[in-house]
Amino acid sequence: MSVLNVPGAVLHDHDFRGGNVIGAARDFSGGKVAVMVSAEGQVVPEILPKTWLSGTRALRQGALEHVLHRALDISASLALLLGTLPLLLLVALAIKLDSRGPVFYRQERVGLHHRRFHILKFRSMTVDAEKPGTAVWAAARDSRVTRVGRFIRLTRIDEIPQAINILRGEMAFVGPRPERPEFVEKLIAAIPHYADRVAVRPGLTGWAQVKHPYGASIEDARDKLSYDLWYIRGRSLWLDLRIILATVRVVVLRAGAR
């Protein structure tokens, strides 16, 4: 592992799945080294100072930009719901015919500033998928997934009802994916700056989702965090539009689903 010497710090060149670290970016507020940036749009969470969030674009946006972001969230969510309405009705019918249980699945997640809310998804697993009450990460070829569930997970159709969460203001169209409280506590304890993800609303899609495959481990969560923090650092309307377009490509190619 190589070492990068930067004034005020000795920083290690971390290996990412998407590429090696290429340089240091300075904090907006104090001019100190705050972020090591990779070629693939990641930052190294291990070397971020405690006050790094104050210099990010996400926290420095003005009222107009917040309004424009919210307008994008609402318009994109309505377009998604109205444009897929016939498909959603067919999926709801298929779920009812395929297995017993409700059409929709509600699950508690951690949102903006650690506020909890219930995410809405099409049910893709059996009703007793977590009968003991223990939170379990989804696995490849998960036996709990129903026949219809495999299809709607592969095509990401199961996520579309979250447009309702966006309209409620619980989520944004683009942002870090909301995680379950049981996992969040473990990940905050294990990964530096994991708690910083809640500085923005969680998203239906995000930079980590288009750049990293599905992960079900602490190591995967750390890798995805490096993308989420990069998004928070440079959040903008243009970046959101780029991510939305990239999401269409990911869905068409059926990449990273489980």
Rank of each mutant, 00 (worst) to 15 (best):
residue 26 R to C: 03
residue 102 P to S: 15
residue 122 F to Y: 05
residue 80 L to N: 01
residue 136 V to M: 14
residue 249 R to C: 04
residue 179 E to R: 08
residue 246 A to P: 11
residue 148 V to A: 06
residue 239 L to Q: 13
residue 7 P to K: 02
residue 30 G to C: 08
residue 11 L to R: 10
residue 247 T to I: 08
residue 146 T to K: 07
residue 180 R to T: 02
residue 58 A to Y: 06
residue 251 V to P: 05
residue 48 L to R: 06
residue 165 N to C: 06
residue 142 D to L: 11
residue 167 L to A: 01
residue 72 L to N: 12
residue 254 R to H: 05
residue 16 F to P: 08
residue 171 M to R: 02
residue 133 G to E: 12
residue 48 L to I: 05
residue 102 P to L: 09
residue 68 L to S: 06
residue 178 P to G: 10
residue 62 G to D: 08
residue 103 V to S: 09
residue 6 V to Q: 00
residue 205 T to K: 06
residue 68 L to H: 08
residue 16 F to C: 04
residue 134 T to A: 14
residue 62 G to T: 05
residue 138 A to K: 02
residue 248 V to R: 01
residue 39 A to T: 13
residue 220 D to L: 12
residue 42 Q to K: 14
residue 213 P to K: 10
residue 145 V to P: 01
residue 29 S to Y: 00
residue 33 V to K: 03
residue 143 S to V: 13
residue 19 G to W: 04
residue 137 W to A: 07
residue 160 I to S: 06
residue 53 L to E: 07
residue 84 T to S: 15
residue 153 R to W: 13
residue 172 A to R: 00
residue 230 W to T: 10
residue 174 V to L: 09
residue 73 D to I: 00
residue 221 A to F: 11
residue 191 I to P: 11
residue 100 R to G: 15
residue 223 D to L: 14
residue 226 S to L: 07
residue 147 R to M: 09
residue 44 V to H: 10
residue 116 R to N: 10
residue 217 S to V: 04
residue 64 L to Y: 10
residue 235 R to L: 12
residue 126 T to V: 15
residue 203 G to D: 12
residue 89 L to Y: 03
residue 129 A to F: 04
residue 43 V to C: 09
residue 182 E to N: 05
residue 123 R to E: 08
residue 68 L to M: 15
residue 172 A to L: 08
residue 252 V to T: 11
residue 86 P to E: 07
residue 147 R to V: 03
residue 230 W to A: 15
residue 41 G to F: 05
residue 100 R to N: 12
residue 206 G to D: 05
residue 141 R to S: 13
residue 44 V to F: 05
residue 96 K to L: 14
residue 82 L to F: 05
residue 179 E to C: 05
residue 84 T to Q: 07
residue 241 L to D: 04
residue 94 A to T: 08
residue 105 Y to N: 04
residue 27 D to L: 05
residue 228 D to K: 08
residue 72 L to Q: 04
residue 14 H to K: 04
residue 197 R to D: 08
residue 110 V to Q: 00
residue 118 H to A: 07
residue 171 M to S: 02
residue 190 A to L: 09
residue 122 F to C: 05
residue 65 E to V: 15
residue 248 V to S: 10
residue 232 I to Q: 04
residue 83 G to A: 13
